[in-house]
């Protein structure tokens, strides 16, 4: 289907309807092909255009598939990204309605907030370090509009990288004060560890993930800007959410962040 955009609109329409009715839909890979990464990003852009037209505001990006094991499971060799919108942000300790995010799971990450633009094609680690204003611990609530999370790479990219909501910790730290590679991570539910990990689990270092995103966004013609939030990718396995759950994530050296789900 190289000369028509119909399949892009069809996929976007299916995902938008699923989100609007809170009813999971069939995968969209039948429309694009399971490995059609460029088309999948075109679907994502279409979704975001609709969201922005409806008055939502873009506040940053999330990076996904930053664990090698997850990349392997999806048969890809790179991360993916999605767009963060203003109404996805919840305050520290918030109670989110359980049915607000479809098929929710939580993962703990490091959020970067940029103090400078990153417009260069060959953005390096050094550029990212220089551009980072501060970092925060974050919980991302991922969700899927696709029934039973039956996703291949095209499905998750088209579905805005399975994004849902996010919570940022409220104590900013500078990069020089923490060990981004060896920082331990734990998510606890009622005091019991349900996910553990370490900074290195995110592409060797969350800085690598942000550098990848910066280069990728330059190629897409929409470079990262000062003020952007970047959720850099999970530091450990994601956790299924049940109604009534409350999670606290701690990242050693960065502090903690928590979120609840109404019963």
């Amino acid at each position: 289907m190289p000369f028509s955009k119909d399949h892009i609109y069809a996929a976007a329409t299916r995902l938008l309807a699923a989100a609007a009715t809170k009813t999971p839909c069939a995968p969209i890979r039948d429309l694009l092909g399971p490995d059609a990464i460029d088309d999948a990003y075109a679907v994502q852009q279409q979704l975001v255009r609709e969201y922005l037209a409806a008055g939502r505001r873009q506040v940053g990006h999330k990076i996904g598939l930053t664990a090698l094991s997850v990349q392997k499971a999806l048969g890809v060799d790179r991360p993916d990204f999605g767009i963060l919108l203003d109404d996805m942000a919840f305050p520290e300790g918030a109670e989110i309605a359980f049915d607000h995010i479809m098929q929710p799971k939580v993962e703990a990450e490091i959020a970067f907030v940029l103090g400078r633009d990153l417009p260069k094609e060959g953005t390096t680690l050094a550029d990212v370090i220089r551009a980072t204003d501060y970092v925060l611990p974050a919980l991302e609530i991922v969700g899927s509009r696709i029934e039973n999370w039956d996703i291949r790479i095209a499905d998750t990219i088209a579905d805005n990288a399975s994004s849902g909501a996010f919570v940022l910790g409220a104590y900013p730290r500078t990069l020089t004060s923490i060990d981004l590679q060896l920082c331990g991570m734990v998510i606890e539910r009622r005091g019991e560890p349900v996910s553990t990990g370490v900074g290195m689990a995110c592409l060797g270092s969350p800085l690598n993930a942000v550098a990848w995103l910066a280069r990728t966004m330059v190629r897409h013609g929409t470079p990262l800007r000062a003020g952007d939030i970047v959720l850099s990718g999970a530091l450990g396995p994601m956790v299924n959410v049940t109604a009534g759950d409350f999670f606290e994530a701690r990242i050693e050296g960065l502090g903690s962040v928590s979120v609840g789900f109404s019963a």
Binding site: M185, E192, P193, M200, A201
Partner: peptide, 10 residues
Amino acid sequence: QLGSSAAILG
């Protein structure tokens, strides 16, 4: 292998 010491009984 990657992880955190928190996996040891919390």
